[in-house]
C-alpha cells in the first residue's frame, strides 16, 4: 500500500490528454456498501476535487456517514459490512487487495461527531500517533504546527500539559482536528464535526474548515444545511442510499436540478 501511494505522487496532479481534467483526489464509481443484505449506499458516483470542501447532506439514515466512513475503510470494523464497486484515492481503488488500510487512514484522517480526546495531556494527544508511527522530525514543532493549524495554539500554548478533558467542547473538537492534522494527511473526513458544539464553537470550526482547505481536501457530513452552504465548495445530496445530486454548492442551494434535492433543501421532506 505504501509503495502504491508513493508512486502516485507524480501523476495525481497531471492534466489528462486534453489538458483539462485533473484527477479527482477521492472518487467513487458505482460504489455500494452493504450491511448484510441491506444496501446502505447504492452505486454512488462522485469525484472530490483536491483542496476543496465537499459536503454530504441528506436525512438521517440516507447513507452519508456510511459513504464517508467508506472513504478510509472505517466500515471494515463493522461486522457484516462489505463494499462493492470502486472507491479511489488518487486514482487507486482503496478496496483492492494491495491497499494497506492503516496507511490509507494516515493519508485520509477522520474527525468524528463527538470530540473524543484521549484522557491525556493536550501535548500527548497530538504527539501520540506521530510518535507511534515513527515520526523522525522535531515533535515539539509538529505539536505546535498542528495546534496552530487547528486554530488552538494561542489558547493552549501555556498549558500543553493540561488534561485534554479539561478543554471546552469546541476546543476538544479542534484538538481532535489537530490530532488528525499531526499525521500529515491529505484528506480530512469530518462526520458532523459541529453537531455537539454551540454556535460560537461551530463558527470557529467553520472558519477553520475554510483555512484547512488550503492544505487538505475536506469531506464533511452535516445535518446542518446552512453549514453545508456556508463552508463547502461542492455538495452531494443523498437519499435512501442513493446519491441523488452532486454539484457546486452555489447551484445546489439556488437551482438544484433534481426535485428531491429541491424538496429536501427547502424542508419539504426529510
Amino acid at each position: 500500500m505504501t509503495e502504491t501511494m508513493v508512486n502516485l505522487s507524480t501523476s495525481d496532479t497531471l492534466a489528462d490528454s486534453a489538458g483539462v481534467k485533473i484527477q479527482p483526489h477521492v472518487s467513487c464509481h458505482d460504489f455500494s456498501v452493504f450491511y448484510g443484505d441491506f444496501e446502505a449506499v447504492k452505486k454512488a458516483r462522485m469525484e472530490v476535487e483536491r483542496n476543496r470542501v465537499t459536503a454530504i447532506i441528506g436525512p438521517s439514515g440516507c447513507g452519508k456517514s456510511t459513504l464517508l466512513r467508506a472513504m478510509n475503510r472505517m466500515n471494515d470494523f463493522v461486522p457484516g459490512a462489505r463494499a462493492k464497486g470502486k472507491m479511489c484515492y488518487r486514482g487507486q481503488n482503496i478496496y483492492s487487495s494491495d491497499c494497506d488500510p492503516v496507511e490509507l487512514r494516515r493519508r485520509i484522517g477522520m474527525v468524528f461527531q463527538k470530540p473524543n480526546p484521549f484522557p491525556k495531556s493536550i501535548y500527548r494527544n497530538v504527539a501520540w500517533a506521530p510518535k507511534l508511527n515513527g515520526y523522525r522530525g522535531n515533535i515539539d514543532d509538529l505539536v505546535e504546527h498542528s495546534l496552530r493549524q487547528a486554530a488552538l495554539w494561542e489558547e493552549v500554548k501555556n498549558e500543553l500539559d493540561k488534561s485534554a478533558l479539561a478543554l471546552s467542547g469546541g476546543q476538544q473538537q479542534r484538538l481532535c482536528i489537530a490530532r488528525a492534522v499531526a499525521m500529515q494527511p491529505e484528506v480530512l473526513l469530518m462526520d458532523e464535526p459541529c453537531s455537539a458544539l454551540d454556535p460560537i464553537a461551530t463558527s470557529r470550526i467553520e472558519d477553520l474548515i475554510h483555512e484547512l482547505k488550503t492544505r487538505y481536501t475536506v469531506i464533511l457530513v452535516t445535518h446542518n444545511m446552512q453549514q453545508a452552504a456556508r463552508v463547502s465548495d461542492f455538495t452531494a445530496f443523498m437519499y435512501m442510499g442513493e446519491l441523488v445530486e452532486f454539484g457546486e454548492t452555489d447551484l445546489i442551494f439556488t437551482s438544484p436540478k433534481q426535485e428531491r434535492t429541491q424538496d429536501y433543501i427547502t424542508g419539504r421532506f426529510g
Binding site: 439556488t254 429541491q262 433543501i265
Partner: peptide, 9 residues
C-alpha cells in the same frame, strides 16, 4: 428562515 433553492429564488 434562511431559505434556499426555489424559496430563495
Amino acid at each position: 428562515y434562511q431559505p434556499v433553492g426555489c424559496d430563495l429564488r
